[in-house]
Design a binder for these strands. Structure first.
Lengths: 85, 85, 85, 85
DNA sequence: TCAGATCAACCGCCAC
DNA sequence: GTGGCGGTTGATCTGA
C-alpha cells in the first residue's frame, strides 16, 4: 500500500479510488438486475407464468453447470487413477 | 403468450427470445461480478485488508440512521448478556 | 417479549436462555463437523483420494435433491397449465 | 484402500461404509441446523430481533481482542473515506 | 500462505 | 404484512 504521508499510513486517494471502482461496478450490476426484473414483468404482461419461467432459466443454468462439472469429475477420477488405473 | 393450443407456432419463438434476453443479462452480471472480484484482488495486492474493505463498502450502502438503529438493538442484547459473559 | 422489569425492557434471563440454546446446538454441530473431518482423514489414511470422495458425496446429495426437484417442476408446470392444458 | 486391481471385492464395501458414515453425520448436522432455525423462529415469536440476535451470537464466538483489531481496520478505512463522504 | 471449493447467512421476490 | 424460497454474497475449510 503506497504510503503518501497522511496521518494514518494510508493512501487515502488510492483507497477512495478502489472503493469507488467497486461501487460503480455494483451500481451497474444493480441496474442490470432491474433490467432482468423488467423482462420478467414484460413476460408476465404477455401471459407467462414467471415462476415457471424462472425455473426454466434456472434449469438451463444448472444443466450448463452440470456439463462442465461432469468433465471435471471425469478428469478428477482419471487423475486419481493415475491416468489409467 | 401469443397462443395456447397452437403451441408449435409463434409463442415458442417469443419464449425463446425472452429466455435469451434474460440469460444475456445474467451473463453480463456474472462478468461484472468477476470484475468486482478482480478489484478486490488488486486491492489485496496493494496491501489492503479485503475483509475490512468489504465491510466498509457494505456500510456505505446503508444509510447511517438505519445502521445506528440496528447497532442499538445489538448493544442492548449484548449488554443484557453481561458484555459477553 | 416478557418484560420482567429490568433496566431495559428486556427479559434478560429469557434472552440468555435463548442464546445458550443456540450456542449449545452450534457446539454440537461443530463437533459433528470434526467427526466428518475425521472420517475423511481416516479414509485418506486408507489410501482414498479425499477430493474424489468429497465429489462422490456431493454428487449423491445433488442427485437426491434433483429427484425431489424434478417432482416439483412437474407439479409447477402442471399447475401452470391449469392441470391439463 | 484395501485393494486396487481386485476392485470387485472388499474395497467396495469399505468405500460404501465410509460414504455412509459421512452421509449419516451430515444428515444429523442438517437436522440440528433445523433446530437452530427453530430456536430463532421461537425467539422471533417472543418479539426478539433475530438479525441482531444472530449478530450477538456471532460476536460471542469471536474473542474480544480479535474483534477489536478487526474493527480498528474498518474504522481506519471508514475515516480515510471521510466518514462516508 | 494463498487460491479454490464448500457451506452458511443475507436479501430480494412472491404468494398467501 | 408475513413467511417461504431462490439467488447472491460472504465466511470457512481444504489442499497446494
Amino acid at each position: 500500500m503506497a504510503d503518501i504521508g497522511d496521518n494514518s499510513g494510508l493512501a487515502v486517494a488510492e483507497l477512495r479510488q478502489i472503493v469507488e471502482r467497486i461501487e460503480r461496478l455494483e451500481d451497474e450490476i444493480a441496474n442490470q438486475r432491474l433490467d432482468v426484473k423488467e423482462v420478467y414483468a414484460e413476460a408476465k404482461g404477455l401471459g407467462y407464468d414467471t415462476k415457471a419461467l424462472r425455473k426454466v432459466v434456472a434449469m438451463r443454468k444448472k444443466d450448463a453447470q452440470k456439463l462442465a462439472e461432469e468433465q471435471e469429475v471425469i478428469d478428477l477420477y482419471a487423475s486419481a487413477l493415475g491416468v489409467f488405473g
